[in-house]
Simulated scan of single mutants.
Amino acid sequence: MNVNTLPTGRRALVSEFAEDPVKAVNEHIALEDQAVPDTSSLQAQDIIVQVKSAAVGWVDLLMTSGLYQHTPPPPYSPGLEYSGIVVWVGADVDSKQVAVGDRVLVDGFQAGPRSAGNYQQYGGFASYAVAPARASHKIPADFGFAEACNLLGSYETAYHCLVTRGQLKAGETVLIHGASGATGMAAVHIAKLLGATVIATGRSDAKLKVVQEQGADHIINCKDPNHPKGVTRFRDEVKALTDGKGVDVVYDGVGGAISLESMRCVKFNARFLVVGWAATPFVAKGEKGESNANMLPTNLIMMKSLQVLGCPTVISTQFDPSSRAPRFNQIMQWVSEGKIKPFISHQFSLDQVREALLAKWNGDVIGGCAINLPEL
């Protein structure tokens, strides 16, 4: 394939950070033409991918207002994870690893906005992206592009939290909050593969029905519009489902009032996994020196002998790169065995980039979401 004959594409660009993601989406994201990357400026180990699909993630939203710990300088194209077809390879790329015409997913740790160095500007909300060849992985035959770009981030997060940190075992019970989200759904899938009983929570009966269809043993709608903090006393339901014993592990990607109530749902010596704080997305926005942190009750932690474990997947991998290979290999083995496949509820075109990001922000998405790039 002659890269010089490829047509001009399109890309979305974040021009500057905003006070919050909604303002960024409405005011600081625009579409523009994109030329094919100049191969003379690329490295011998680089590849160019014609993007077919890019995941729409929570982190993509946080980045637009500088709320994420790894934030590329604007302008940049969002889209941490993407998949597509290789249209150019550098001179030193081993054709046994990747070749022109291959269908690949690109590792968001090593390329795209969350990576370091020269690849930050190349997000997946664009017709073309540049990545090092080592960041590409061939897509399983039974995966579409949308499923492929929604694989690694969600399932690696769920695996790191449940397995590496939580040490979840067969026969144990795990309470998974935000189970209809991308990482929450992945956590349901992985917990079931490990032989655990899953109690999944959410705020929508319709979404929870899908979560149950995806493998959750029990579902609880924890929304209470009449409660000051909007959360039901779901400890009673959890205790009823566990014969009064409580759960062994809590997977909490929501935070806020959910966290407090969860600490009344656990066994003695349970593990509490802090995965995220979707309920309080602006917690990092305090002025320097101002306390704006989420708080957990030390009395409950002590009396339950609760093990509270922070689970930052990316940061943990940076501190210990060797931790990644076991989880990556296990996930890809499960994929090859047909045991996991991302559930995708929403797909959008690049022209609908604002609608896609707002659908994610507003909680419309169940599992994964993708932007599909137009044919060129």
Rank of each mutant, 00 (worst) to 15 (best):
A186G: 12
A216C: 14
A196I: 06
A216I: 13
V210T: 15
I220K: 11
I219N: 01
I190C: 08
T201P: 11
V198P: 06
A196T: 00
K192R: 14
A187T: 04
M185S: 14
L194S: 04
L208S: 13
H218T: 02
A200R: 01
L208G: 11
V188K: 00
V198T: 03
K209E: 15
I219K: 02
V188A: 07
V210C: 10
H189S: 09
V198L: 06
I190F: 07
A186D: 03
A216F: 11
A216D: 06
G202P: 12
V188E: 00
V211K: 08
A216G: 14
I190L: 12
H189C: 01
I199A: 13
V198R: 01
G215L: 12
L208I: 09
E213L: 13
L193R: 02
I190Y: 05
L193D: 00
A206R: 14
I220F: 06
K207G: 09
G215M: 04
H218Y: 13
K209M: 13
V211G: 13
V188Y: 01
R203L: 10
R203Q: 14
I220Q: 05
L193W: 01
V211S: 12
G215W: 13
K207A: 05
I190S: 09
I219G: 05
A186I: 04
V211C: 14
A200E: 02
Q212N: 07
A206E: 15
T201N: 01
A206Q: 15
D217V: 14
A191E: 04
V188D: 06
V210N: 05
R203E: 00
D217G: 12
G195P: 00
K192E: 03
V198H: 00
G195A: 01
G195C: 05
N221I: 12
H189F: 01
A191P: 10
H189I: 00
A216N: 05
G202T: 11
I199C: 08
A187M: 03
A196D: 04
H189R: 03
I219V: 15
M185R: 01
K209R: 13
N221M: 11
A191S: 15
E213K: 10
D205N: 15
D205R: 05
V211M: 11
R203K: 14
H189E: 03
T197H: 08
A206N: 14
L208N: 14
N221W: 04
M185A: 15
A187W: 01
M185W: 03
V198I: 10
A206D: 15
A216R: 02
S204P: 08
I190T: 10
I199K: 13
G202R: 03
E213D: 14
T201M: 15
G215Y: 10
L208T: 14
S204K: 10
L194K: 10
E213R: 12
E213N: 13
I199M: 10
V210W: 11
Q214D: 07
V210A: 07
A206Y: 05
A191D: 00
L194C: 05
A187Q: 03
A187Y: 06
G195I: 08
K192C: 10
S204V: 11
K209P: 02
Q212S: 13
V211W: 02
G215Q: 07
A191Q: 04
R203D: 08
K192P: 07
K209D: 15
